[in-house]
């Protein structure tokens, strides 16, 4: 069984936001409009935060892309009252849009604030041309439910189908999410953390690797590679 994980090299990331754009297109995240976005309601499964450290002129700026951390012990899953969010195959935290009652407890519980809510019927309100341009592999979300990054789970399903067609073991299928493909700086690595031959598994063990809010015990599967000047 795979345990899908991601490594993002912050020293390579140049903050171009191509990953976020690819993510939005791939997973049918609807544009919410200016006024909604200003209220803090924009839906971007992969959000990019800016981190500034030091003082001018010795200023250091980093862009930190944040998809769902796909925790191994996800706080959002613990609080869901209806099994709408759960730890699915390959350690991917899944969301059942047809089950979700929209209580937003998972949003309140998620320390990374990477769960998003459909305050209006955003996807359904798009013009027909945009509706047609949607990715048919990913269902658009109705009003009133929570959505989140799925590590492009639909691509995993496709990869498994393909493996079956080619007579390979579907459990060993490998796939790549849209953000990884789109990154021009090749800063995003994706793969099976439990398979020691993958680059992801190797980088996750690197001394440069850390995870966000590791001390909370959520065990995220998204690793960040940072410059470590002060460590041997």
């Amino acid at each position: 069984m795979s345990r899908w994980g991601m490594v993002i090299d912050l020293e390579k990331c140049n903050g171009c936001e191509a990953c976020a754009a690819a993510c939005q297109a791939e997973c049918n995240q609807p544009p919410v409009g200016e006024s909604e976005a200003r209220m803090g309601r924009k839906i971007s499964w992969l959000k990019i935060s800016e981190e500034l450290t030091g003082k001018f002129p010795d200023l250091h700026r980093r862009m930190i892309p944040q998809p769902c951390m796909q925790c191994d012990d996800p706080p959002c899953v613990r609080v869901c009252p209806v099994h709408a969010t759960y730890l699915g195959e390959g350690g991917i935290v899944a969301q059942i849009y047809q089950r979700c009652i929209g209580c937003r407890f998972c949003m309140a519980a998620c320390p990374y604030t990477v769960k998003y809510f459909n305050w209006y019927n955003y996807a359904g309100g798009l013009p027909a041309a945009e509706q047609e341009a949607m990715n048919p592999e990913v269902s658009p979300r109705p009003r009133g439910v929570v959505e989140k990054c799925t590590f492009c789970h639909h691509r995993l399903l496709l990869a498994k189908d393909q493996a079956r067609l080619q007579g390979n073991d579907p459990a060993r299928a490998v796939y790549h999410p849209a953000c990884e493909e789109a990154c021009p700086a090749k800063a995003i690595y994706f793969g099976d953390l439990d398979d020691s031959t993958t680059e992801v598994a190797r980088l996750a063990q690197s001394h440069r690797a850390s995870r966000l809010m590791e001390d909370l015990g959520t065990n995220p599967k998204v690793y960040y590679l940072a410059r470590k000047e002060n460590h041997g």
Binding site: V82, I101, G102, C103, G144, V145
Partner: peptide
Amino acid sequence: VLLDLGRIDRVANVFMYGRYQSPL
């Protein structure tokens, strides 16, 4: 709490698929 739900039409899910791990 019901007013706060995004999908009041699915409130029956709490009866059908409720889980006791959730403080709700």
